Simulated scan of single mutants.
Amino acid sequence: MTLRTTNLVRYVCGHEGVIRLSENDQPYSACDERYDVINLRGVGVNFTRMADWPEVFEQMSLQCLACGTKLTPENLVKQP
């Protein structure tokens, strides 16, 4: 089975986008994480291990669609 979560990112210009994480949550199976972009400029990436946010942002080359600003983990919107 696949667990999907969404992570909101907000740019300095106010534009928002989403990073969608799809991960394998089967017990005793191999780790598999897939990150996809929604309303952002960048590429989807796949990891066969647990990745951290700085690596994910670097590999995805995320940019704002509106202003072209490069995104960093500091652009993640904290969920309450």
Results as ranks from 00 to 15, higher is better:
Gly17Glu: 10
Leu8Ser: 01
Val56Cys: 03
Pro54His: 04
Val45Thr: 08
Glu55Ala: 06
Asp52Trp: 04
Leu71Tyr: 11
Arg34Ala: 06
Leu8Thr: 05
Arg4Asp: 01
Met1Asn: 08
Ser61Lys: 15
Val45Arg: 07
Leu71Asn: 02
Tyr28Cys: 04
Arg49Gly: 00
Arg41Ile: 14
Gly42Arg: 07
Asn24Gln: 11
Lys70Met: 06
Pro73Lys: 02
Ile19His: 01
Asp52Tyr: 08
Thr6Gln: 13
Gly14Arg: 01
Cys13Leu: 05
Leu65Val: 09
Trp53Phe: 11
Glu23Gln: 12
Val45Phe: 04
Cys64Ser: 13
Asn75Ala: 12
Arg4Glu: 08
Ser22Lys: 08
Leu62Ile: 15
Asp36Gln: 13
Glu55Lys: 01
Ala66Gly: 01
Asn39Phe: 09
Asn75Gln: 14
Gly14Ser: 05
Leu3Lys: 11
Leu62Phe: 09
Val56Glu: 02
Leu3Asp: 10
Gly42Asn: 10
Leu3Trp: 05
Val37Lys: 04
Asn39Met: 09
Leu8Gly: 00
Leu3Tyr: 10
Glu16Met: 12
Leu21Met: 07
Gly44Met: 10
Cys13Lys: 02
Asp52Phe: 09
Cys67Pro: 02
Thr6Lys: 13
Val37Phe: 04
Leu8His: 03
Gln59Leu: 12
Val12Leu: 12
Ile38Pro: 00
Gln59Thr: 13
Glu23Lys: 12
Val12Asp: 14
Gly68Glu: 07
Ser22Gln: 07
Thr6Asn: 07
Ala51Val: 06
Pro54Asp: 01
Ala30Asp: 14
Phe57Asp: 02
Tyr11Pro: 00
Tyr11Cys: 15
Thr6Phe: 05
Thr6Glu: 14
Gly68Arg: 06
Ser61Ala: 14
Lys70Val: 10
His15Pro: 00
Met1Pro: 08
Met60Tyr: 09
Ser29Thr: 14
Pro80Arg: 07
